[in-house]
């Protein structure tokens, strides 16, 4: 695997799989509407070659106004459908503002789907403010900082999550900000799980 890790940006060339194309197609619409977001899910491990798929991709999206959401909705529903509701106002007021994600899939499909949600707590806000970027085939995807991606997977703690954490650590351990990484291990109180990384 050839990648360049510099200044918070990772450059990677790869042949896109169907999940990559789904993510890029959806995120390009957010980019066109100047919506700030970050990808935080296991998809990050898949983007970098993990041999598994995922039925959902987690997005934290900046808390936008109802008007901006309605405008975004009109753009999204030309190519994607919301699996929770067909009503933009309901999606915004009943779901997103109540901390519940709405999911979008390609028309007529159910999986994979994008899990679209507003930031819930301070860590979500930090994640959104401290994005890391992956450049793939002249497109850019914002992902959560690798130091958080790995440690949060350990925090979640399922076997799949720990496998993702170990996989990403194995690929990027030489590129991590050690102070930040250790800080997350300490603050998430998962020091004992660090043994799973090597």
């Amino acid at each position: 695997m050839e990648f360049h890790f510099k200044g918070g940006k990772i450059s990677l060339q790869k042949e896109l799989n169907s999940l990559d194309s789904f993510v890029f197609d959806f995120c390009s619409l957010l980019d066109k509407e100047n919506i700030k977001y970050v990808i935080v899910s296991g998809y990050v491990a898949i983007l970098f070659g993990r041999s598994r798929s995922s039925e959902d991709i987690d997005l934290i999206v900046e808390r936008i106004s109802k008007e901006r959401f309605r405008k975004l909705w009109e753009v999204l529903v030309k190519n994607f459908e919301c699996l929770n509701t067909t009503n933009a106002v309901e999606a915004y007021a009943e779901y997103l503002l109540n901390g519940v994600a709405v999911r979008f899939a390609r028309m007529g499909e159910f999986i994979p789907n994008m899990e679209f949600k507003f930031p819930k707590g301070e860590l979500d806000q930090w994640t959104l403010q401290n994005r890391q970027y992956v450049e793939v085939l002249e497109r850019t995807l914002p992902i959560s900082r690798m130091e958080l991606q790995i440690t949060f997977k350990l925090f979640l703690g399922s076997e799949k999550d720990i496998e993702d954490a170990r996989f990403l650590y194995r690929l990027f351990r030489e590129n991590l900000d050690s102070e930040l990484f250790e800080g997350f291990l300490h603050k998430l109180k998962i020091g004992e799980k660090a043994g799973y990384l090597s």
Binding site: M1, E2, F3, Q13, K14, E15, N17, G49, L171
Partner: peptide, 14 residues
Amino acid sequence: LKRTPNSQWSKQQK
């Protein structure tokens, strides 16, 4: 993965 060219592993993944 680390020692395999991107074109090769990403084709297999696809």
